[in-house]
Amino acid sequence: MSKYVKRFGMLAVLAAAMTLPASAADYPDRPVSLMVAYSPGGATDFQARIVTMVAANEEYLGQPIVIINRPGAGGKVGWNKFASGARKDGYELAAYNVPHFIAQSIKFKTKYNVENLEPIANWGADPAVFVVNRDSPFNTMKDVQDFAKANPGKLTVSGAGLFVGHHIAYLQIEKALDGKLKYVPHKGGAPALKSVLGGQVMAGVNNLSDAYRSRDSLKILGIADVQRNEEFLPDVPTLKELGFDVDDSSVNFRGVMVRKGTPPEVIDMLAAKVPEMFKNKRVAKQMKAGGSPVRVMTRDQVKAMWAKREAFLKQLLAGL
C-alpha cells in the first residue's frame, strides 16, 4: 500500500513540476500572450502589435508575444476575464488603458481594480484634444468659452462613450470653462469624430492621433495634457497654457500589465526588459509612421500614475 502511495506521490510531484513554469530563471521558454480588450484594427490593438513585434529578439524576451483580442462592453469583458482567470506565471499579459479600466472599476462592479493588477511598463500616451470643424465659427478656446457662457447647455460636444478618457477630459473642460456644455456620447472615437466632421455636433473631444490624421478637416484648439506634443502637433497649445485648469488626467495611457500574484522574479525581469523593448528603434519608427504618440514609462512610474489617477477619478466620478 505504502509503495503505491509513494509512487503516486512521485507522480504528483512530477506532474506538478511539468505544469509549473520550470523556474522563474528560465522564463520565458515559450511564447507569451498579450490580451487586448478591444477589437482588431483599433488603436490599442495595432499599437500593441507594433510595440511587441521585436519581443523575440534575444536582448528582450527571446520569445514572441502573441496578441489575443477579447473585446466587449468597452473593455470590461476582456479585463474581467483577465483579472479572474489569467494564469499568474507571466505567460499571460494584458494591455491596459488608463483611465478607462480605473474609471470602470470605480463606476461598475468589475472583477478588476488597481489593487489586483500589476503594471509592467507603459508604451504610449494619447492625450485628448478639443476639436471643431474647419468651418466652425470658433477659432480659439476663448470663443468656445464665450459661446458656452452666453448659451448654457447649447454647445454640443461629442466623445467616445461614458466614463472613458474623452468623457473625463470633457468633464474637466466643462469645469474649467465655467460654463454649461452638452456631452453627446458615441460608440467609439471614430463615430464621435465623424459627428464633428459631419457637423452633427459643434465640437468634440477626441484622441490626438485620430484628430492628427483628420487635421485638414478640423481645427484643433487645445490639448488636455501638461505638455505640448512636439512630435505631431507642436503648434497646438495645451489647455493649461490657455489658462484653463485641465491637467493630464484624461490622457489615454496604454501599457502592459500582469495579474497580482505573478512571481516577483518574473515581474522584475519583465519590468527591466519590456521598457527597453518599447524603446527599440524599429518600434519607434513604426509608431511614428502610424501617428501614435509614444511615452515609455517604467513600472514604478506607472504604479504612481495609476494611484494618482484612481484618487482623482474617485473624486471626479463621485458626483455622477
Binding site: 483599433g42 495595432f46 507594433i50 471614430a190 466632421l197 483628420s214 513604426q286 509612421a289 502610424g290
Partner: peptide, 23 residues
Amino acid sequence: LSVPGSPTAAVLLGGLLIHGIFP
C-alpha cells in the same frame, strides 16, 4: 476623411496604419 464607416472599414484602417499609411 479617415473615418471608417463600417466595422470592416475600421479593421482596414488598422491595416493601413500598421504600414504607416494615413487615409
